[in-house]
């Protein structure tokens, strides 16, 4: 893992600073991870270890969730979330670039207007959206879900990317244009490398929002073979009892692919390129 670039330009910390940082980091790590460890341990116990402390080690929770279709749900979630993340990121880069580099009519209105949908509580939009989806035949389809998630993640991503882009000097683009590069080349060869951490951050946001979203998936996906992971997880919450072991195993299984996906991506954020680009 490469360290953030700026860290090279701070004075080396003294022993006190080191100790304080270490303590803080351990506290943060503990609070973030402890609840998850609790779930991990519970996922190997009957009843998730919730109903009695003296549980034996078991794989049954995992067997049960895969018997009830989790393999399929992982695939569905991956297809929908990866597609929506890609679509959302590409659209946002395009829109953010236009907003941050050009002046045009209605720019402010458009920029503010993008927030339009974000000011509504999504639960009131569920019924109108459902009716609209039904007429467009988008219920129980990958496309419908991908479009939904794209539409719901684009506003934040555009704003976030504009926020990053305004810190990148316009002179960079202009120099390249003078050298004969097209706008697309500028985006691809100059902006993208500089903005990589920003893209990764917004893509992570888009992906995880889709990955954990429940309300829309519930309303728009009723066929078992199309369901996503959060729906799969909810099925263990019954009326008279909850299968806690399965809930915990499902939660672990829901978290794992995120790691497998983001470990390599996070590793690629190389800050060295940024320095080169600005010169």
């Amino acid at each position: 893992m490469s360290a953030p670039a700026s860290s090279r330009h701070w004075r080396d910390p003294g022993p006190t600073a080191l100790a304080v940082s270490a303590v803080l980091a351990v506290v943060v790590l503990f609070v973030m991870v402890y609840p998850a460890v609790y779930v991990l341990i519970g996922s190997f116990r009957p009843g998730g270890g919730l109903l009695s402390a003296t549980g034996t080690f078991t794989f049954r929770n995992y067997v049960r969730i895969f018997q009830s279709g989790f393999g399929r749900f992982i695939v569905n979630s991956l297809v929908i979330c990866v597609a929506a993340t890609l679509a959302s990121t590409v659209l946002s880069i395009m829109a953010a670039y236009a907003f941050s580099r050009f002046d045009f009519r209605f720019k402010r209105a458009l920029f503010t207007g993008i927030l339009f949908g974000q000011v509504f509580p999504w639960i009131v939009l569920i019924n109108p959206l459902f009716v609209a989806f039904a007429t467009m035949h988008l219920i129980n389809s990958y496309i419908g879900m991908i479009l939904t998630y794209t539409a719901f993640t684009v506003p934040f991503s555009v704003y976030m990317l504009v926020g990053y882009l305004v810190t990148v000097p316009k002179s960079l683009d202009e120099a390249a244009i003078i050298d004969g590069a097209s706008r697309w080349q500028v985006i691809w060869y100059i902006i993208c490398p500089v903005m990589l951490p920003g893209f990764v951050a917004t893509a992570t946001y888009a992906f995880l929002l889709c990955w954990t979203e429940y309300l829309f998936a519930l309303a728009f996906l009723t066929q078992t073979d199309l369901k996503t992971l959060p729906l799969g997880l909810y099925q263990f919450f019954g009326e008279d009892n909850v299968d806690w072991g399965a809930v915990m195993a499902a939660s672990v299984v829901t978290t794992l692919p995120v790691f497998l996906l983001f470990l390599p991506i996070q590793g690629r954020i190389s800050p060295g390129r940024i320095a080169g680009a600005v010169k």
């Binding site: 991870v33 998850a36 429940y214 997880l233 909810y234 939660s251």
Partner: peptide, 26 residues
Amino acid sequence: RAMKLLRLAAVSRFALLIPWATPPIV
């Protein structure tokens, strides 16, 4: 810089993904 010296920066970044990837119900 301390985080780097302590080799905690990368670990912490992954640790942060855990709560984030946890569905609100869980």
